[in-house]
């Protein structure tokens, strides 16, 4: 018999506990999986505050989060499709580290990264795709090999399974057992969750299990696979969260200057990361005017869906 929610042990812990427990030094972390929305910045900043070292970061197009972790000296290796600042271009910490060869880089496309995670999610050693043939991704990514299709004889790219130690996923709402609702574009979130050994959910809102089970199609991954649930309001700022807040373009544009030199980045880290200890501190730093400016001005509520019998 399955346990009633009342008897199930809560997985809700603080952000610092979650990062301390599930992201040890040297672990492989997949994050930023929805691409430009729902980026778990609060969790990334906690990793910088805890001075994590030798992490492997896995993600499709990291919109400044990976650059910040590289600047915080948390990273040994990156397995990603794109690392930079979507609205301005280059990520300067990443660029410096790559040019000084202080980090190792495995160059993916968004599709090869998705396929690597899907292979792990499916419990197989690789997935085939037709992308990247003839490209130099093969020169800087040992997870790609060409193969001959056993049915058609066509040449295919085989992408080796990518199995992260932990996925960090930001969501709109979760119950305290890790059953979480996400809406909006999903990126590679579902395969990232299924492929990972453990999952940390950071949520704008913690809600009752009744809210979640009223709409099971919206659940991003089953709660039994989740290790920790963290209440993290504004935890994806400055990226947008559908239903919660808009993208803070100014913060991304300002980060370009803030990361241009190691000195400027150290100053940015001291103010925006090290001086912040929880979401209250972060909200105070943002200020009411800014959060008000990013709030939704126009609501579109979906039609009710009947899951009854």
């Amino acid at each position: 018999m399955t346990k009633a929610p009342e008897e199930t042990q809560t997985k809700k812990i603080s952000l610092s506990q979650a990062i301390a427990r599930f992201v040890p030094d040297d672990s492989a972390v997949v994050m930023g999986t929805a691409q430009e929305t729902l980026i778990p910045f609060a969790a990334g900043h906690e990793m910088i505050r805890q001075r994590k070292r030798d992490l492997t970061l896995i993600g499709p197009i990291s919109d400044i989060l990976f650059d910040q972790l590289v600047g915080g000296r948390c990273v040994r290796k990156i397995r990603a499709g794109w690392v930079g600042n979507v609205i301005t271009g280059s990520g300067y910490n990443f660029r410096r580290a790559a040019e000084n060869r202080t980090i190792e880089i495995e160059d993916h496309s968004n599709l090869t990264l998705s396929m690597g995670l899907r292979a792990a999610a499916m419990g197989v050693s690789f997935m085939p795709t037709r992308t990247a043939l003839g490209s130099d991704l093969y020169k800087t990514n040992s997870s790609l090999k060409t193969m001959t299709c056993p049915f058609t004889g066509n040449t295919l790219t085989a992408v080796a399974a990518i199995r992260p130690d932990v996925a960090i996923i930001h969501v709109q709402r979760s119950d305290e057992y890790g059953n979480a609702h996400v809406w909006g574009n999903l990126g590679i979130t579902r395969e990232a969750c299924l492929a990972s050994q453990s999952i940390i959910i950071t949520a704008e809102e913690i809600v009752s299990s009744d809210v979640i089970t009223s709409d099971p199609n919206r659940v991003i991954t089953p709660g039994f696979r989740v290790s920790a649930v963290v209440h993290a309001p504004w935890g994806a700022h400055p990226s947008p969260v559908p239903g919660c807040y808009n993208r803070d373009h100014e913060a991304f544009i300002a980060y370009r200057t803030a990361s241009k030199t190691p000195e400027a980045f150290a100053d940015w880290q001291a103010r925006q990361v090290d001086a912040v200890h929880n979401s209250d501190d972060y909200l105070a730093l943002l200020g009411k005017e800014r959060t008000h400016g990013l709030a939704l001005k126009h609501h579109v509520i979906s039609e009710e869906t009947d899951y009854g019998y």
């Binding site: 499709g81 794109w82 930079g84 280059s90 040019e99 496309s109 990247a132 991704l137």
Partner: peptide
Amino acid sequence: TRLPGSGGACDLAS
């Protein structure tokens, strides 16, 4: 110089 990388560009071109 290290640039940001492919993102989806390699897939679109392929």
